[in-house]
Each structure stands twice: as structure tokens, then as C-alpha cells.
Simulated scan of single mutants.
Amino acid sequence: MVINHDEAAAVRPLTLAWVSRHLEVGERIVRTEALQGGITAEMRRLTIGTRDGRTRDLVLRTFVDPFYVERAEDWLNREAGTLTLLAGTGVPAPGLVVVDPTAAHCEYPSLLRTHLPGRTVLDDEGLETRVPLLARQLVAIHTLRPAEQPREYETLTTADTVVVPKGADAAAWAAAIDVIRKPAPPYEGRFLHRDFHPGNVLFDVPPSTPAGVRISGVVDWAQPSWGPADLDAAHCSTNLALLHGPAWGLRFAEAYEEAGGVLAAVASERLYWRVRDGLAFSEDVQLVAQSWREAGRAELTTRAVEERLDAYITALLDAPG
């Protein structure tokens, strides 16, 4: 019997049968729970009852939105390949159980993976401890040298698709858009997560000693790429700026270098990657803000996030060097 927290947690019949076929003999799903915070896919935690009376957890990722279903085969194949690649590397990624990228067995394209301990932490409290951990983890990811190089990174915006927020500093945004009209700077390729940010990182936070927090997992490996370390660092920076304020977005690059990471040596090249990533958020502010509110940050309205994005873009252009 499957016990649901609510209707949203229910697993569709074909998918339920598919998952059940890939459990160990004598195992069964005893509970499902919808996980909040996902933008592109539905996420559910499945609690599995084992033959010896214990339980273990798996995570089911399902693409249902037509826009993302069209891209699901590519993303799920890439994620499955990456999870296999990361096994044994020291990067705390989930293990792959099974994938159905074309919905041959499930109602929608789906991937089943192991569940990692820990939780996402999006609160302001304790951020000064978590930022260096994020930086060190990203540096570790960038040191990976897979035998088969992933595809080159894709840009997520163009100068013509940027959406300038209402009331934004028009001069600053015009200058920022001019920055990304230029050709991309040369770079030394690195293995990129391509969506590394606090919402895709799990933390183990001991209740008695919060300062002993550690990273227990990195998830959402749907878009691994080959490209500049600056781009991954910039993406985490933008997320930090919108979640916690522009100063934290500016701080992350320093933390990344303090952790041993290497970013572009020329200030204009650093600016290019930071601005490119920041502007990419202009087209998805509403979706991003909604996912964060669902994850507990009720004050992050679309307008509040737009204002932070405006402040961050302005701060990038004003930042020395």
C-alpha cells in the first residue's frame, strides 16, 4: 500500500509499476512524499520497505511540463550517464537506479536514483559557514577529468532576449546587455555541473552543533557541460545574490578562489561570465521566485527577486576589477 502525504505525492500507475519492477525481491513502496523546490521536474521521495522490516529511500524525478518533456530524453540520458561517471569520484552524487528517458514504460520521462542524506538550506542564517563549503565543493567538481568530455556549455540568454525588470536601472542594464553582445572570452575548459547552487546542494546540519555543517550531496546532474569555471561560479553567485542579497553574490567568486579555484585573470572576462549568467535570470524570475517560496522563503516574491537582480547587475558593473 502506498501512503501519500497528499495528492501531489501520488505516483502515477504505470510509473508505480515501473519502479516496483526495479526494487529488490520482497521490497515494496510504503510511502511517497512530494519534494518542493524543483522548477523543471516533479520530485518525489519514495520510502521502500525491505524484506527485513527496515526502510530505504529513493528519489523519483519526472518531467511533465510539455516544454521540459521535449527536452527530457536528452537531459535524462545525460544525467544517467553523469551519475554513472561520478560513482567513486568522491563527489557526493546520487547513484543511478534506472531511467526511462522516452516514457517507454512510464506516463512521463522519469529517472529513479538513490536518496542522499541531508537537506537543502536556503535560509540566511549560517550562510557565512555554508558559502566556503559551496566553493570547495564546486572546485572539487571542476577538477574532474572524465574520459569522455561532455558537450560544450550552452548559453541561456542573448542580448535580444533579456527582460529588463520594471523600474530597473536602465543605464546599468543597457551596459550589461552590451557586455554580452561581445564574443565569449577564451577559456580553459573544465567539467561543469552547469546548475550548481544552494537548491541543488544537500547539507547535513547537526542540531547540537550547527557550525559543524557539511555538504552531504550534490543533485540535479541533467546538464553537465564542458566550459569555463567562471560560468559555474557565476551561476552560484547569481543564486546567492537573489537568495541572500547582492553582497553574497559578489563574495562567492572570492570564496571560490580561496578554495583553490582558478577564474579568468582579466577583469573584463570575469565580468562577461557573471553578467551573462545574471541576465539569464531575467527571463525566469517568476519561476525561480515561486520555487523558493515553495521551499519556505515566503518573502521572496517575484518583485523582491527582480529588485535583487537589478541591484546585483548594477553592483557587478560598479565592482572594482
Score class of each variant (00 low, 15 high):
residue 1 M to G: 06
residue 16 L to C: 12
residue 17 A to G: 09
residue 18 W to V: 00
residue 26 G to M: 05
residue 28 R to E: 05
residue 30 V to Q: 11
residue 31 R to A: 11
residue 32 T to K: 01
residue 34 A to R: 15
residue 37 G to H: 06
residue 38 G to A: 11
residue 47 T to S: 12
residue 48 I to P: 02
residue 49 G to C: 08
residue 49 G to L: 12
residue 51 R to E: 08
residue 64 V to H: 15
residue 83 L to C: 08
residue 84 T to F: 11
residue 89 T to V: 09
residue 90 G to E: 12
residue 92 P to M: 12
residue 94 P to I: 09
residue 97 V to M: 09
residue 100 D to S: 13
residue 101 P to A: 12
residue 106 C to R: 01
residue 107 E to H: 15
residue 109 P to I: 12
residue 110 S to N: 09
residue 120 T to C: 11
residue 121 V to M: 03
residue 124 D to M: 05
residue 124 D to E: 10
residue 124 D to W: 05
residue 125 E to D: 15
residue 135 A to S: 04
residue 138 L to Y: 10
residue 138 L to R: 00
residue 140 A to P: 02
residue 146 P to W: 07
residue 146 P to N: 09
residue 147 A to N: 11
residue 152 E to M: 14
residue 154 E to A: 15
residue 159 A to M: 09
residue 162 V to G: 03
residue 165 P to C: 09
residue 168 A to K: 01
residue 170 A to Q: 12
residue 171 A to Q: 08
residue 176 A to D: 03
residue 183 P to L: 01
residue 185 P to H: 09
residue 191 F to I: 11
residue 192 L to T: 07
residue 193 H to W: 05
residue 194 R to C: 13
residue 200 N to A: 11
residue 212 G to T: 08
residue 213 V to E: 03
residue 213 V to G: 08
residue 214 R to K: 12
residue 218 V to W: 06
residue 218 V to S: 01
residue 220 D to M: 10
residue 228 P to D: 13
residue 234 A to C: 15
residue 240 L to M: 02
residue 248 W to E: 00
residue 252 F to T: 00
residue 254 E to Y: 10
residue 254 E to T: 13
residue 254 E to G: 04
residue 266 V to G: 00
residue 268 S to L: 10
residue 269 E to A: 14
residue 270 R to K: 04
residue 284 D to C: 07
residue 285 V to Q: 08
residue 291 S to G: 07
residue 294 E to D: 13
residue 294 E to V: 09
residue 303 R to A: 15
residue 303 R to G: 14
residue 304 A to M: 12
residue 307 E to P: 09
residue 308 R to C: 11
residue 308 R to I: 15
residue 310 D to L: 06
residue 311 A to I: 08
residue 312 Y to N: 02
residue 313 I to H: 12
residue 319 A to Q: 10
